[in-house]
Design a protein around this nucleic acid. Sequence first.
RNA 1: GGAGAUGUCGCAUAGUGGCCUAGUGCGCCCGCCUGCUAAGCGGGUUGAGGUUUAAACCUCUCGCGGGUUCAAAUCCCGCCAUCUCCGCCA
Length: 427
Amino acid sequence: MIDPRLLRDDPDAVRTSLRRRGESPDKVDALVAADAARRSAIAQFEALRAEQKQIGRQVAQASGDEKTALLERTKALSAQVKEADAEQARASEEFDGLLRSLPNLVAPEAPEGGEDDFTVLDVVGTPRDFAAEGFTPRDHLEIGQLLGAIDIERGAKVSGSRFYYLTGVGAMLELALVQLAMSTAQKWGFTPMIPPALVRSRAMEGTGFLGQAADDVYHLEKDDLYLVGTSEVPLAAYHSDEILDASSLPRRYAAFSPCYRREAGSHGKDTRGIFRVHWFDKVEMFTYTTLEESYAEHERLLGWEREWLDALELPYRVIDVATGDLGSSAIRKFDCEAWVPTQERYREVSSTSNCTEYQARRLDIRVRGTASDGGGSTGPAATLNGTLCAMTRTIVALFENGQQADGSVALPKALHPFLGPVLKPVA
RNA sequence: GGAGAUGUCGCAUAGUGGCCUAGUGCGCCCGCCUGCUAAGCGGGUUGAGGUUUAAACCUCUCGCGGGUUCAAAUCCCGCCAUCUCCGCCA
């Protein structure tokens, strides 16, 4: 959530941000009113409570008629305090609920508009000219079947649509990517992590996934646990309710985990192969830092994502995602999109978001000793996340871009130590 | 899954209904003293919220949430976590 003080000091900034996201700014008025109601309820409760405590101390020392009289007064007061406390709690809860439903402010630099209004920041590499090479490219599923790497029919038989088995070299390719990604991230200074993929609602809500994205989340009702759609969730919640020493920042974690997504609302989209699935594995980067440092860290995360794609020798472009297409936690988001030859377009393979203090406020993650005030006080941390390697989409890109006329796939040098230079059709 | 125990300030502990405005020790911070170091002496040291120009004051916070009571760290109920034992299990 955003800084509640901003609602009092500069509500127009909040309205402007909502408008830029394509949302109605109306709820700002309700928030300002709820804030005023909350504060007045708190003041009322505290005044009554102070009186109750004062008289309570007198009761302990009094005796006889004096005590009876005091008890008379404080008995009535007790009911009033209880009532005021309930009202204060109700008003605070209402304000908190409204505040949590508000998305993060958007960065002024983020381009305004919807899904198609992104800005292209860079284009790297050149898509191959298959016509010049004299053959028509096969799509990733066809290649995966030739290599014995992907079994989509049995995935559907066992688990339904959008499920798959990685088999043979497919399974080994994923493990190679995981191993390479984790060790590379460790070299960059990230702490390797394998986090839980089932989390409580606190973690899910705190990272901002139970708002507009709630339909995309799997929920295990019997246990009230959620399957994470990204390890951003357990990584953000890792330090919840903690105060981090400023000198320990930035803290960088790289996590390998499965990711589960209901893909509600994407019926009929990307139905072929393993491009859009209900489950995939991913290595995710995550940083805890300060607000001031978050902007530079966002650029660094993008830099590492690019370095990874460079190492995989994939052609890609980088886009600055438009305000209307940002998640509720993010103020700005950069996507890396790899070229997919059979679709003749760039498709998202990684994404990095600066969530500033939004998640940290919800999860109560604070920093002690920020530079701005000599080191004594605490303030919310800033969190950022970025994909290092989403397995299925990376496999799609590697297969399609590396394919050769005979159905084999030439691998980037970085993967040679694991799998050799070429994956060959099985039969 | 069953039985039992435990949860107090960074750490260790005291606290069995009003003297708790949570004490003490350690650690940490500031100062004094001191050839140096150590010791010693004095003060400070959970976090959040509210009133406010400020200073200051007030409220909440003893794992979390309810309840009893004029009054709860303390009594009752539920939950969470940890530990020990039994069962099951990769």
